[in-house]
Amino acid sequence: MRCIICQQEVIRDVTWQTFLKPPERKKICNHCSHLLEPIYSPCCPSCHRPDQELTCKDCLQWFESHPGLLDRNVSVFKYNEFNKELVARWKYRGDYVLVEAFKEEIQKKWLSAGYQGRKVVQVPLSEQRLMERGFNQSDAIIKVLEEEPLAIFARTHGEKQSKRGKKDRMHALNPFTLQLSISEPVVIIDDIYTTGRTVRHMADLLKKQGCSSVSSFTIFR
């Protein structure tokens, strides 16, 4: 089998354990697996920023300016240069199968996050953006998690977040509208947590309509 990221042949490690009970076929090679860089401790307890012993500066600012909106974010991998290229291939060049490269680590992190039993909220795309990409990355992640998406938001079309600087993102108008209120705890699923503005736009609307708890889960931070 070839690695779905780099197309090099995947060489399986052979031990007595794997000889007696063959493992599931690996979808990525050891080299690419290493470059994905899963996030481990230490990390910010509020947003999962890697290599951060205590609550990071950005989260402290959020606590001061918008207290009580988002309980916490949990992310799987560092948003390094290798992963930026993967995101570009996945989201913007239509290489949908790449989500399989993240599957095992995503599922493991989801279980360890303790989010089971919460309603899982999809981050919508505008109709134009959905037509451009051919799929919604939030839905793709929710499918990997084997959860049922809750599509309760609509989104107006606007400039891509990736083209905005941090200051512009922080002061952007809320592009979402909440179409159905919910009181139960929810987890918003997205691909990347950068400034946290997107999930807090959504959390703000949810909290105003009586949602008891809002957290988020993303692949990259």
Rank of each mutant, 00 (worst) to 15 (best):
C6Q: 06
C6I: 08
Q8K: 13
Q8H: 12
E9Q: 11
D13Y: 04
T15E: 06
F19Q: 01
K21F: 15
K21T: 03
P22R: 15
E24Y: 02
R25L: 10
K27M: 10
K27W: 07
C32Q: 02
S33T: 03
S33C: 06
L35C: 03
E37N: 08
C44D: 03
D51S: 12
T55C: 12
C56T: 08
K57S: 11
D58K: 09
Q61H: 08
H66Q: 14
L69Y: 12
L70P: 01
R72P: 02
R72N: 11
V76L: 13
F82G: 00
K84Q: 15
A88Y: 15
G94S: 11
Y96K: 11
Y96Q: 10
V97F: 15
V97N: 10
E100A: 09
E104H: 08
W110F: 15
Y115T: 03
R118I: 03
Q122F: 06
L125N: 08
S126D: 04
Q128R: 10
L130P: 00
R133Q: 12
G134M: 11
G134W: 04
N136R: 04
S138P: 00
D139A: 14
K143E: 11
V144K: 03
V144P: 01
E146I: 05
E147Q: 15
A154K: 15
K163L: 13
R164A: 05
G165S: 08
D168N: 12
M170L: 15
N174L: 13
N174S: 09
Q179K: 14
Q179G: 09
I182V: 14
S183W: 12
I188S: 02
I188F: 04
Y193W: 08
T194S: 05
T194D: 02
T194P: 01
V199K: 01
R200N: 07
K208S: 05
S215P: 08
F217Q: 05
I219C: 10
F220S: 01
R221H: 14
